[in-house]
């Protein structure tokens, strides 16, 4: 059995440190998702307006955010905020800004899709039953959109968590950075630590994302 560098994990507080790093990434995604959902709903509603100005502005926003790699967006916010505005924002703040902007765009598009996918006769049959527009919205339209949206927003959470791995690249100390530090510190005593540590980091991400994906898939099936 070759040395897989697994022993390093159990040395000192290494495992706890890794989990702490993971928490940094998860915390950033949770904050971003919490901000993205209300902002996304707002954006989604605005996107269904017929006003040409809001249509164009929201469209450009959406297209730009979605076409750029998230890492490019991180670079733009992280590096140019200092330069342009003289703010020295931390990597964590830059990450929350970028992921919220991205999550809002994705969520907004989902909300828009859900809203326009409700057939017109649903509104009409509400009106035919003499419900007020508010009642129609509250009892007929919103319950249908929510069912479509919940699995998709849960999927957004896993995508968000996977994407937070990128914040390493703008110097945030998260799980990968902690992993690098541990590997570096044990370079002499345990030269193969990279295998065990990176394997564990891979498993950690999987253990978080997989159950969430399963939940989304389950709800999608149940509510179809």
């Amino acid at each position: 059995m070759p040395d897989l560098g697994l022993d390093v994990l159990f040395k000192g507080k290494n495992m706890l440190r890794l989990l702490g790093g993971l928490w940094v990434a998860v915390r950033i995604s949770l904050i971003s998702v919490a901000l993205s959902i209300p902002l996304g709903i707002l954006l989604g509603i605005v996107m269904t307006w017929k006003n040409p100005v809001t249509k164009t502005v929201t469209r450009i926003y959406l297209e730009f955010i979605r076409i750029m790699p998230q890492l490019v967006l991180l670079f733009i916010v992280f590096f140019s905020s200092t330069r342009t505005f003289g703010w020295d924002i931390s990597g964590e703040l830059a990450s929350v800004i970028v992921f919220t902007a991205w999550g809002t765009a994705e969520m907004g598009d989902l909300v828009r899709g859900a809203l326009i996918s409700i057939p017109k006769h649903q509104y009409e049959s509400g009106a035919a039953l003499a419900l007020s527009p508010f009642q129609t919205y509250f009892y007929i339209i919103i319950p249908q959109t929510v069912r479509r949206l919940i699995p998709l927003s849960i999927n957004l959470v896993t995508r968000m968590i996977k994407t937070t791995s990128l914040i390493l690249m703008i110097g945030v100390v998260e799980v990968l950075k902690v992993a690098q530090q541990i590997i570096e510190a044990n370079r002499m005593s345990s030269p193969n630590a990279a295998f065990g540590i990176y394997l564990v980091v891979l498993i950690m991400y999987f253990m978080i994302c997989w159950p969430i994906s399963m939940l989304a898939r389950y709800l999608e099936k149940k509510w179809r």
């Binding site: 994407t163 791995s165 390493l168 990968l176 891979l202 991400y205 999987f206």
Partner: peptide, 15 residues
């Protein structure tokens, strides 16, 4: 599908 590409690459390249 449930792990980030960055970590997959780290594993392939460094581990």
């Amino acid at each position: 599908r449930n792990t980030p590409l960055l970590i997959q690459l780290f594993f392939i390249y460094y581990a």
